[in-house]
Structures are given as structure tokens and as C-alpha cells.
Design a protein around this nucleic acid. Structure first.
Lengths: 231, 231
DNA sequence: CGAACCCTTGATGGCGATCAAACGCCGTGG
DNA sequence: CCACGGCGTTTGATCGCCATCAAGGGTTCG
């Protein structure tokens, strides 16, 4: 890692308040690496060599067997991923690949395990990071079990809008095919789902989404006040 | 909590290796309570007052809006639940109720937060507990997205058998209606799914499941070597 | 003994997957 | 500069899984 990059990384939520000496030790053994788009980072089933943190860019976590595949999460900066595997030293449950060119901080997992065990502030960060991931997947599972595809899309749009301070127009963060997989449907049906939402206050053109009637959209999607929240 | 019960609780994985003084402090403020079956413990959306640990019995975590409901997990001894909410002080994402008469240890969440922050061994236990929950929901989500209902049931049976050291005959841990909800289907279709599995080496009579041909079942269900594992 | 309640079995319908083909966008190469 | 080819997306037609509706059988408990 270059010296110029250290302050930026040190400011990450996970590292911000930890002991500087220990942090320095972690950084000394870590790599901040730039990856091209569509590069596989690791496979499900592997033992975790590194804890990964997305500093810039976007990473897709996905699973699947030979026949089928599905994207489990999209990781945007600044978040770690597979902390659960790295800390407990169990095989990855998901594979990872970059969606865009990405800068990723890679820290050897034995090192991060020790550091978490020895630094209270880092541990707190790790607990929060893990708790965030836990809650994300709880949400994703209930989204999947309780709602049908068009509702999921509607709530996704509301959530994205919410993360942009309620912006009524924004760009989709990923290709539609990836979004379809994230939402548990086929690209064909995502296309049709956007069509349905046209009658519920949403216009889509290319990659840009415009909410023309947020109230009507909310009425259709029925977001859950607890479940459909960032964080 | 009665004095006679303390050693049993102190032996729980979460508490086993923590500082005895701090543990004593936690116990002094905790309740070990017996609940009847079908009792609601808390509702999604509430702020977490207590960390719960199932010592005996069985607890169902579930979500749902007015129309639909689904069970998210079945908690069997000895596990904590909603640690993520209790530690980060965010509202519960799921509701909880007992399935059977249950003994549950309830620890005020501010207390458990402090204790985790101050006791390294407890913190490790909490990290592992959280990591376990995280991985459980990752599995559940990919199970839901990648497999259809009969496959899910087949893999559930294989998993239960695996947890009983490969026993070829065992009792279903919950009512079939609850199992159906856990597996994301209706009771009617669970019934039909058992029917289908009859041609793949599984016989069901009442609550007892018998695997007559484990190989044929595995061939049909195609369990994932990484995903379909306890722990 | 009767009444819930759970489970099962059957019939029907809808959501979404699959198959198929055409469109639009964008790169490369002539 | 334009033709071509690849790929993501859209649109249409069909099929299959599973939910829903409905009714009957079994068990448990008051």
C-alpha cells in the first residue's frame, strides 16, 4: 500500500478508532489492489485467505451450482465482505467478482483475526459490520419469501431512492441482468416488471429510473417500515 | 435465576470462558424464565430490551405483514437469537414465539453490550454466534433462490439426518405446517412434496421420517458440499 | 362424544421460467 | 464513414411450479 493511500484507508469505519500501532501492523501486511471489471476474486468453498474491503468500485457476491446461479449481494464502498468466513476461518459460502474496476483492500485473515481479538475498537467495528451483514440477509430472505417479483422491484427502487436522499431520478447501479438476479428473477421478467411499474409511478429509460409518483409507488410496493431501510 | 441453575448456564458456549466476575454480574441481572408453548416473545420493530438464549425448548423466528407470514428460523438449544439487534441496539427484524414449552435466558441488552465490549472471551463468543447466524441466512437465501420446493425438502431431510449422525430415521422437530413455512411453501405442497420424495428414498408417516435410500435421495436433492452443512 | 385443528387429496389458476426472436446499442474493422 | 457482429434488453408465446380454493379424513383435547 502506498503511503499516500494510508490516511484514506485509516479513515474507514472499521479502522477509524483502533490502536494506531496495530493498524500500522495490519496495513504493512495488506494489499490495496486495483482489479479490472468482471474479475473473479474467489470461489465459494475456498478457505478465506483474506478479508476484503471494497474501497472503490463494486463487487458482486454470488452462488450457484452448475445449472443455476444467483447474485446474493452487491457490495459498494466502503464495506468489508466475508468477514464471517474470515473470522471463523470457515470456507466462503459465496463467490465474488468485480462488477466494475475496483480498488480492494486485502488483509490476510489470520492477521485480522488476531487484530480483532486484541483491539477492542476494531472488534466493535467488526461486530457492527457482521451485524449489518446479518440484517441484510434477513431482509433479503424475507423479501424473497414474502413478496412477488414486481413488489421486490418496487421496493428496491424506493430503497435506492431513499439512499439518495429521496432523489426521484437516479441511475441503476448495475446492469439490469445483474439486478434481475439480485431480485431473484430473470432478465425477461425484470423487463416486464418495469413495464408493470409504469402504471405505478415509475418510468425507466435505459439505465435511468424516474419516480413520477412516489406515493402511488409506495402504495403498490407497500414497503415495511422496519424492513425496508438502509442500515 | 436460581443458584442450582447457574452452573448449567455458565457452561453455555457463549459464557464458558468469560471472566467469572463479569459473568456473575450478568447473571445477577438476567432471568431464566419458563414459557408455555405458542407464546409471543416479542414483535418485529420493537427495540431490543433483552438478549435471548434458548436453554430448553424451541423458538420460532418469523416475519410478515398483514397478509402473509413466514417462519425465518427455528432456534434450538443452545443458541442465542437476535444478538445483532441487541448489540447494535436496532429494532428487531423478526418476531419470536415459543413452539414448545421453553426455558429462555433473558439478559438486558445494555448489559450484554457492555459485557461484550469489556470481555474478550465473551466478545469472541458473540462474534462466533453472529457469524453463525450470518451464515445461516446466507444458506437460507440461496436455498430459496436456487432450489425448488421438493429439493429444499430433500436437503432439509439430509441436513436433519446429518445432525443426528446420519440417522436414517428421526422425528420431525416441528409441526408440518411450520416446516412448510420454514421451507417457503404451503402445507398442501409440503404434503405433496413428501409424496414426491417417496420415489426418491424417503418414507414419511406422521411425524417420523425414514430414509430408505440415502444415495437416491442425495442424487435427487443434490446437496451442496459447502452450503448444506450444519455450523 | 363432539369440535377444533392439522394434515391430506383433488381441481383450478396465476406467477414467473423458459424458449424464441427481434430490437437497439456499441464496439471493431473494412 | 459505414457495415457488421456481439451483447444486453425487450417483446411475445408457451409451459411448469406452486398458491389457492375446496372438501374429506384423522387426531387430540375439552
Amino acid at each position: 500500500m502506498r503511503a499516500a493511500e494510508k490516511p484514506e484507508i485509516a479513515a474507514l469505519p472499521l479502522f477509524a478508532s483502533m490502536d494506531p500501532d496495530q493498524r500500522e501492523q495490519i496495513f504493512a501486511a495488506s494489499f490495496l489492489q486495483v482489479f479490472p471489471p468482471s474479475l473473479k476474486l474467489f470461489d465459494a468453498g475456498q478457505k478465506p485467505d483474506f478479508l476484503h474491503i471494497v474501497v472503490d468500485g463494486m463487487v458482486e457476491l454470488f452462488t450457484g451450482n452448475a445449472d443455476r446461479a444467483t447474485t446474493m449481494a452487491i457490495i459498494r464502498p466502503v464495506r468489508s465482505f466475508i468477514l464471517a468466513a474470515a473470522y471463523t476461518d470457515q470456507p466462503y459460502l459465496m463467490s465474488a467478482r468485480t462488477l466494475t474496476a475496483s480498488r480492494i483492500l486485502m488483509t490476510p485473515s489470520p492477521l485480522i483475526r488476531d487484530a480483532i481479538d486484541n483491539d477492542r475498537e476494531l472488534m466493535r467495528g467488526a461486530m457492527h459490520e457482521l451485524a449489518f451483514g446479518f440484517r441484510y440477509f434477513v431482509r433479503a430472505l424475507s423479501d424473497m419469501k414474502l413478496r412477488q417479483s414486481v413488489e421486490r422491484l418496487g421496493n428496491f427502487i424506493l430503497l435506492e431512492s431513499g439512499e439518495r436522499d429521496g432523489a426521484v431520478q437516479f441511475e441503476l447501479p448495475v446492469e439490469k441482468r445483474t439486478l434481475a438476479s439480485l431480485l431473484g428473477m430473470t432478465p425477461e421478467n425484470l423487463s416486464r416488471a418495469f413495464g408493470v411499474l409504469a402504471t405505478h409511478g415509475v418510468i425507466v429509460s435505459g439505465n435511468t429510473v424516474q419516480i413520477t409518483d412516489a406515493e402511488k409507488l409506495a402504495e403498490f410496493a407497500r414497503p415495511d417500515p422496519f424492513l425496508d431501510q438502509p442500515g
